[in-house]
Structures are given as structure tokens and as C-alpha cells.
């Protein structure tokens, strides 16, 4: 069969079944958009992790007069202990930078953070511990630092800020997984709708397919126009879904980003990558649904 003839058959099929075509396009658009939102939530969680993990530190608090841990039994940290800890830290390969925060610096920071609160007035310089703020090359390597310094004389507590963030991220992961599940479920719905639509289309055109079969058309050439109709609907739906995701990106950049300054947001690149996955999903799902349906209803 010639391409022109196939295309004219596809055009006839799509027009004859215009409302169904419309329904399929809309369903594909919505389901791919939902899946795309799931993919973008994944990008967003990753972006936030990168952003936050880049900022978090491991804090090694040193013994002060108020410390009660066993390693502080020898009283406040001595100058030699402090120096030794600092040198050992700088020699650790996982450590990127080490910053010493003295009691007075800790006090200043505290005052700044709680400047509108009554607590700020009740705290004195010597109540706050001095500490090393350690930035790791890879924030997941916390255990190395902890095992090396926890319980060491002069060290009160080794604290990983990541542990606090983990709880937050596990919540975000649940939300992301939920979005992906909803997206996949709606893609499945779209696949079923495509399958049913093609079944109706095959029934509507049974005269044509019977004649094609009789004059010796191969099953491939009989099925091709239907397959292309499914693909056409999937691709138009994909185009709309990419438009929706782009719109979402604009809204995020324009309205949400200025309000939520504590994080970065997914990039345009993430949108295009998600869109590419959606195209793949749309084509594969509609192709599969079409082939399975047509094999059943267009036997040659």
C-alpha cells in the first residue's frame, strides 16, 4: 500500500470517529500529564536533596562546662584536644572543609536566629558549646566521621543534620510515589480506552477490512491504519501533556519560586527529559494496546 492511501484511510477513520478520537486524545493528555507530574516530583525531590545535602554539615560539639556525656568526664575540652581533633578531621579523606565555631560565634548565631524570642535573653555565651562544622565530600559518609570522633575525649556529641532532613525527604518520597502510582494508573486507563476505541473502529470498518482481506492485503497493511490512528491520538495527547508540564514549570518559576526561597526547583531540562519519557510511554502503550486489540479483532 502506498503511504498516501494509508494516510487517507487514517484520516477517514479519525474523522468518522471524531468524538472518540477526541476522548482518546484528552484521556492520553491527562494521563500523560499526571505521569509527568509524578516524574517532575521525582526531579523536584532530587533537586531538593542536592540543594540541602550541599548545605548540611556534620557538627562535632565539644565538651563544655554543662556537658554530661561520659566522654566529657574530664571536664571541658582542652586546647590540645581541640587542636588534635581539628588535625585529625582535616586528615580524613571524606572531609571537604572544617570550620571551627567558637562559643562567642555560636552565641551570635543563636542571638540572630532567636532575636524575636525571649530565649535569646536567657542564654549566656558560656552556655553554648563550641563546635567543628564539617562539610563532607559526600553527605552520606556520615558514619565515617561518627565512628572516628564519637566518644573521643573532648567530644560531646557528633550530630548529622542529614538525619533531620531524612524524615522530611521520606515524606516527600511518599508523595512522589503516590503521584507516580496515580500517573501509571491513568496511563493504564488510557491504554484500555485506546483498546476499546480501536475495537469499535475495527467494527465500524469491517466492510473495508473484509474487502482488504479478500483482495489479498497482508494483515500488517490491514492493521496499519488502525495502529497509526492510535499512535496519532497518543502523539497529539503527548503534545498537550508537554504543554501542560511547561505551563506548570512557568507557574512554579513565576508564582511559587519567589515564595519558597529555601530550595531550588526542577529545571527546564527536567521538563524535557520527563516529556521524552512521556512520548516513549505514550507510543509504547498505545502501540501495545493497538497490536493486542487488532490481533484479536482483525484476524486475517
Amino acid at each position: 500500500m502506498r503511504a498516501g492511501f494509508v494516510m487517507s484511510e487514517v484520516g477517514i477513520g479519525l474523522r468518522r470517529n471524531l468524538t472518540m478520537t477526541f476522548a482518546v486524545v484528552i484521556t492520553v493528555a491527562i494521563s500523560l500529564s499526571l505521569l509527568g507530574i509524578g516524574l517532575l516530583s521525582n526531579s523536584q525531590v532530587r533537586t531538593m536533596k542536592d540543594y540541602w545535602y550541599d548545605k548540611i554539615e556534620v557538627s562535632i560539639f565539644l565538651c563544655g562546662p554543662l556537658s554530661e556525656t561520659p566522654s566529657c568526664a574530664g571536664g571541658p575540652v582542652t586546647a590540645e584536644q581541640r587542636l588534635e581533633i581539628q588535625q585529625d578531621l582535616q586528615e580524613l579523606p571524606v572531609v571537604q572543609t572544617v570550620y571551627y565555631e567558637s562559643q562567642s560565634e555560636a552565641y551570635q548565631r543563636f542571638q540572630e536566629r532567636f532575636k524575636d524570642s525571649a530565649i535569646a535573653q536567657n542564654v549566656t555565651v558560656d552556655q553554648l558549646p563550641e563546635s567543628f562544622r564539617v562539610k563532607l565530600k559526600d553527605p552520606t559518609e556520615f558514619a565515617v566521621v561518627e565512628s572516628a570522633f564519637s566518644g573521643r575525649p573532648g567530644v560531646d556529641v557528633v550530630q548529622d543534620q542529614r538525619a533531620i532532613l531524612e524524615k522530611f525527604f521520606s515524606l516527600l518520597n511518599v508523595l512522589r510515589d503516590g503521584a507516580l502510582v496515580i500517573g501509571l494508573a491513568s496511563v493504564l486507563t488510557a491504554a484500555l480506552l485506546i483498546s476499546n476505541t480501536l475495537r469499535i473502529a475495527a467494527y465500524n470498518r469491517r466492510r473495508e477490512t473484509t474487502v482488504m482481506k479478500l483482495v489479498g492485503a497482508s494483515s500488517f497493511s490491514i492493521q496499519l491504519p488502525f495502529l497509526l490512528e492510535g499512535l496519532f491520538a497518543a502523539i497529539v495527547g503527548w503534545g498537550i501533556s508537554t504543554g501542560i508540564l511547561s505551563g506548570l514549570k512557568f507557574v512554579v518559576d513565576d508564582r511559587i519560586a519567589p515564595l519558597l526561597t529555601f530550595t531550588n526547583f526542577f529545571t527546564w531540562n527536567d521538563v524535557w527529559v520527563a516529556s521524552a519519557y512521556l512520548l516513549l510511554t505514550g507510543v509504547v502503550v498505545s502501540g501495545f494496546a493497538s497490536v493486542l486489540t487488532l490481533r484479536k479483532y482483525l484476524k486475517v
Binding site: M1, R2, F5, V211, M212, V215, G216, A217, S221
Partner: peptide, 9 residues
């Protein structure tokens, strides 16, 4: 239609 199906020009 028959000829189209069989790929005639």
C-alpha cells in the same frame, strides 16, 4: 480500493 491495497500507483 483493491488496487490501492495491493500497492498499485
Amino acid at each position: 480500493f483493491a488496487l490501492h491495497v495491493l500497492g498499485h500507483t
